[in-house]
Simulated scan of single mutants.
Amino acid sequence: LTPVALGEFEGNLWAGEAKAVMGMYLDEQANERQREALQMIFGGQAGGWPAGFAANVGEMRGMEFVPITFEMAGDLSTWRVDIPGLVVGHAEALSGPTTPPGKRVQTINPPGSEVGPGQVATWGRSVEVSTKGFGLDWTGTARSSKHIPFDWTGPN
């Protein structure tokens, strides 16, 4: 299942200098049990890393279940998310003169990783962005983007 979070903050969220304003779109393919679990996880009630992240959210503007399409190139060169009428996000991985051919700009254990420690972030920039919802509406290009895979598990 795919979650999409819209958020904004000013200052260093991780140093306690800011609190985020967020809204979340969650995959409509979730069944009732999964919907309840997703709301508990992203609301912080399930504990673990998500609860620590949720403590940095000063205002949660809502969670909605919607159709979400996520695509990622097998070589991590591009990723894209679409929510009809609400979100379009298309990003390309960064590269540079010292990046070996076919490799991506990545960080292991990135500082401030939204999905927790021990992850690999692939850094990119947006080539298309349009978001609408929860009063967090943006359009444009060349915004920062990163792809961070995660697998949160917990008790049954």
Rank of each mutant, 00 (worst) to 15 (best):
L1R: 12
L1C: 11
L1S: 15
T2R: 14
P3T: 13
P3S: 14
V4T: 10
A5G: 12
G7K: 08
E8Q: 15
E8S: 15
F9H: 15
F9K: 01
E10P: 01
L13F: 00
L13S: 00
W14V: 02
K19I: 00
K19Q: 14
A20M: 06
G23L: 03
G23K: 02
G23N: 00
M24T: 03
M24I: 07
Y25N: 01
Y25A: 00
L26Y: 02
L26S: 01
D27F: 02
N31S: 06
E32G: 00
R33G: 12
R33D: 15
R35V: 05
R35H: 06
E36Y: 06
L38R: 06
Q39F: 06
M40Y: 05
M40R: 15
F42M: 11
G43N: 04
G44K: 09
A46T: 06
W49G: 13
W49I: 11
W49H: 15
P50V: 11
F53N: 12
A54N: 12
A54I: 07
A55I: 02
N56Y: 09
V57W: 07
M60I: 07
R61C: 04
M63L: 12
E64V: 01
E64A: 08
P67G: 06
I68H: 10
F70G: 07
F70I: 10
M72Q: 15
M72W: 06
A73K: 14
G74T: 10
G74E: 15
D75Y: 05
L76C: 11
T78R: 15
T78F: 09
R80P: 00
R80G: 01
R80T: 09
G85V: 00
L86I: 01
G89F: 11
H90K: 13
A93K: 02
L94W: 05
L94N: 05
S95T: 14
S95Y: 05
S95H: 08
P97A: 08
T99Q: 03
T99S: 05
G102D: 10
G102L: 07
K103R: 14
Q106R: 14
T107R: 13
I108A: 13
N109F: 09
P111N: 09
G112Y: 02
S113C: 15
S113P: 08
E114I: 14
V115T: 15
P117A: 15
P117S: 14
P117F: 09
G118T: 02
G118Y: 04
Q119S: 14
Q119C: 11
V120A: 12
V120R: 14
A121H: 04
T122S: 11
T122G: 03
T122A: 11
T122D: 04
W123E: 09
R125Y: 10
S126W: 07
V127R: 13
E128C: 01
V129Q: 10
S130L: 11
T131Y: 04
T131V: 09
G135I: 04
L136K: 02
L136Y: 04
D137C: 05
W138L: 14
W138Y: 11
G140I: 08
G140S: 03
T141D: 12
T141W: 04
A142F: 10
A142C: 06
R143N: 12
K146T: 12
H147C: 11
F150Q: 04
T153E: 12
T153F: 10
T153S: 14
G154M: 04
P155Q: 13
N156F: 11
